[in-house]
Design a protein around this nucleic acid. Structure first.
Length: 492
RNA sequence: CGGGGUGUAGCGCAGUUGGUAGCGCACCUGGUUUGGGACCAGGUGGUCGCCCGUUCGAGCCGGGUCACCCCGACCA
């Protein structure tokens, strides 16, 4: 009681520090001793697993199948698609040797210089190349298409500066790769998968997103079009949360993936790729959390309801019974529940700890209240407490979980919508964009204007949004005519 | 790779004029507790990032080096 309630830095004081502390203290992840890498702890991984399962089902509903391709990619593969090389051949880890040997004095091991590889292997930064190299053998006829595969894996990009979940040298993700007989079909697939991502973000993560298409400069290396979902964090910055690429025939040509069409004529296959990563965890954390810690959407919370007993030892048997009964009822309704009757932690500690971990609903069963036949139910999103009779409480909690899911989405959406501005004056823009927020501005479509905005403000064009009513206007920077407004923001 | 900062117990930090290392949290033992992060008593834990130098003596002074963090360039 006497102590400061929050164990975290306040969000308003130092957003980065708050985020980092939260990730560590909520037991999600920590920085590894290995450069730029992250250790995902069991609690954090449980959330990721839930995301995986749901996404995986969503993919399968669209006909996608899972497969797995090698971690190591021959260097020559990365040289085959010119633009792809430019974008990806740089910050990669390279395997040059295949053997170690003991030092002369037995004090350790050294790389055996005799074991140098003839061709170096690259630890995949993304798998387009190795997958398209394989697709060549799988695709011969239009009847083999479309080919829809996905893999869950890790990739590695030697990032300069890393940040838990948002940017780490190694990260977990899924990458979908599809091959199609026609341009239209491939384009439709790229857009379809973006819709899947948007749906997942909003429905399960309760994170509202703006869907749109990237400008040429922001495009994926080797893509003709990159579609994106952009979420707004609580500091007003944008987070690119998922991307889907229409790759044209670039990889088909680079890896000679040809098929015979119905007219018996050879054609190059059309490609898409699409991915979301553990960065989604960062989006989840930064969208909903407050100064008490994490706030998890019920749909993704590993523990949806925690039951905490309060009693003297002599009364514990009775409380255990009531708690187990309730726990059973909740489980029957498909709710994951934890009864924490550990006696080495006091109730106050448990309250704070489960709030920090974002458990959506807390039920307190106390000897005192039980005499009146009631228990205390607290919802994490609003921190509101309510005394309720045990009778019928399981059904009530089930409804409450749905309500929390809907409420945190609405809260996040209201927060975001209040920070989306139309802006036509560049001086005004330059000042305001520093405080965060999404700015809808007319853009003349040139890379010069884009570069100037970035140089002046660090903000970038996040996308040309789909769901904004577009009217022609004047570019606020160049004064040239512009056909549409684009979304501009500072980003992670 | 540029600009700034920090390295002392698992974590967060203090360490005065150079005199041989301390606090809080955590951890362990015992006891009392249990309605919002318990209390008391006792205890474990250190090559002061690393190397070289100055000195009778270095956590502290000088030189070098490494690592990490923050701000840029790069990025899911």
């Amino acid at each position: 009681m006497a102590k400061e309630l929050s164990f975290l830095t306040k969000r308003s004081e130092d957003y980065s520090k708050w985020y980092n502390e939260l990730v560590v203290k909520a037991d999600l992840a920590e920085q590894s001793d290995v450069r730029g890498c992250m250790v995902i702890k069991p609690y954090g991984y449980a959330i990721w697993e839930k995301m995986q399962r749901i996404l995986d089902d969503m993919f399968k509903e669209t006909g996608v199948q899972n497969a797995y391709f090698p971690l190591l990619i021959p260097k020559s593969f990365l040289s085959k698609e010119a633009e792809h090389v430019e974008g990806f051949a740089k910050e990669c880890a390279v395997v040059t040797h295949y053997r170690l040997k003991s030092k002369e004095d037995k004090s350790g091991v050294v790389v055996d210089p005799a074991a140098r590889l003839e061709e170096e292997l690259i630890i995949r930064p993304t798998s387009e190349t190795i997958i398209w190299n394989t697709f060549r053998n799988w695709i011969h006829s239009y009847r083999d298409l479309p080919l829809l595969v996905n893999q869950w894996c890790n990739v590695m990009r030697w990032e300069m500066r890393t940040r838990l979940f948002l940017r780490t040298s190694e990260f977990l993700w899924q990458e979908g790769h599809t091959a199609h007989a026609t341009r239209e079909e491939a384009e439709a697939r790229a857009q379809q998968m973006l819709k899947v991502y948007a749906n997942f973000a909003e429905k399960y993560m309760a994170v509202p997103v703006v869907q749109g298409v990237k400008s040429e400069t922001e495009r994926f290396a080797g893509a003709l079009d990159t579609y994106t979902i952009e979420a707004m964090m609580q500091d007003g910055k944008a987070l690119q949360s998922g991307t889907s690429h229409f790759l044209g025939q670039n990889f088909g040509k680079a890896f000679d993936v040809q098929f015979l069409n119905k007219e018996n004529k050879p054609e190059y296959a059309w490609a898409t790729s699409w991915g979301v990563s553990t960065r989604l965890m960062g989006a989840l954390i930064m969208t909903h959390s407050d100064d008490n810690g994490l706030v998890l959407p019920p749909a993704l919370a590993p523990i949806q309801v925690v039951i905490i007993p309060i009693a003297k030892e002599s009364q514990m048997a009775m409380i255990d019974e009531k708690a187990n009964e309730l726990s059973k009822k909740l489980k029957a309704l498909g709710i994951s529940v934890k009864y924490d009757n550990a006696d080495n932690k006091r109730p106050g500690f448990k309250f704070a700890d489960y709030e920090l971990k974002g458990v959506p609903v807390r039920v307190v069963i106390g000897a005192r209240d039980l005499e009146n036949g009631v228990v205390e139910v607290m919802r994490r999103d609003t921190l509101e407490k309510e005394n309720m009779p045990l009778e019928g409480i399981a059904e009530h909690i089930k409804q409450l979980l749905d309500e929390i899911q809907a409420n945190i989405f609405k809260k996040a959406k209201d927060y975001r919508d209040a920070r989306i501005y139309e802006c036509d004056d560049y001086e005004d823009f330059k000042k305001r964009v520093q405080n965060g927020g999404f700015f809808l501005c007319h853009w003349d479509g040139t890379a010069e204007t884009e570069a100037k905005i970035k140089e002046d403000t660090q903000a970038t064009i996040r996308c040309v949004p789909f769901d904004v009513e577009q009217t022609p206007g004047v570019d606020m920077v160049s004064g040239k005519p512009a056909v549409a407004r684009v979304l501009i923001a500072r980003s992670y």
